[in-house]
């Protein structure tokens, strides 16, 4: 995947929505931002509040990445999955309960992943955002499989996050965070 002449910056409290046709590199760009892929040429700089540059490791620890895949195991219950995510993130385990409530999956807590619907699995993946406060959210097609009420929930959670000074970069086919800046990707590829 090649990006040419691609340049953007996102400030605290703001959001950027990546749009473009299939194969235009939205996911690739998000994975580069998450530090999962390295750009061959080009620079990616993260600055903290005092404009000091942030190292790659710190950046990994300061971003949430919710990808296409749900990170749900069919034989683990929702609660077990989120506890495991909390342990891996280094988050407080006590926030698992409130995260489940935020995403309206508290009553599914003891169900194994195999019994969840696509939308419920998505909510388990999104609940990771509420496990730990991290300034950068990277969301790949967050609206997929979500019904209207959960979409509204996602909107509210994102608004709260930005109000608290967080920033969001999301890739979406559908209109998402309509007040945010957009970056058209197909044009650059």
């Amino acid at each position: 995947m090649v990006f040419r002449g691609l340049s953007f910056d996102v400030d605290a409290g703001n959001a950027l929505v990546l749009v473009g046709p299939n194969g235009s590199g939205k996911t690739t760009l998000l994975r580069i931002l998450a530090g999962l892929l390295t750009a061959t040429i080009g620079r990616l700089q993260f600055f903290s509040d005092d404009r000091a540059q942030v190292s790659d490791d710190t950046r990994d620890q300061s971003a949430h990445f919710v990808a296409h895949s749900d990170t749900v195991k069919s034989s683990l219950t929702v609660k077990e999955t989120l506890r495991f995510h909390a342990d891996i993130l280094g988050a407080d385990r006590t926030r698992v309960q409130s995260a489940m409530e935020t995403w309206d999956i508290a009553r599914l807590g003891d169900l194994p992943g195999a019994l969840l619907s696509a939308g419920q699995r998505r909510r388990v993946a999104l609940a990771r955002l509420s496990l730990q406060d991290r300034p950068i959210w990277l969301l790949d097609e967050p609206l997929i499989a979500l019904d209207r009420s959960v979409r509204a929930r996602l909107h509210d959670v994102c608004a709260d996050h930005r109000a608290a000074g967080g920033l969001i970069v999301a890739a979406s086919h559908e209109p998402f965070l309509e007040d945010a800046a957009t970056l058209e990707l197909g044009a650059h590829a």
């Binding site: 990445f65 990170t71 891996i88």
Partner: peptide, 14 residues
């Protein structure tokens, strides 16, 4: 790898 947990592990401090 398939369900994305590997991404989480790669981004973790471990």
């Amino acid at each position: 790898l398939q369900d994305g947990t590997l991404d989480l592990l790669r981004m973790s401090a471990l």
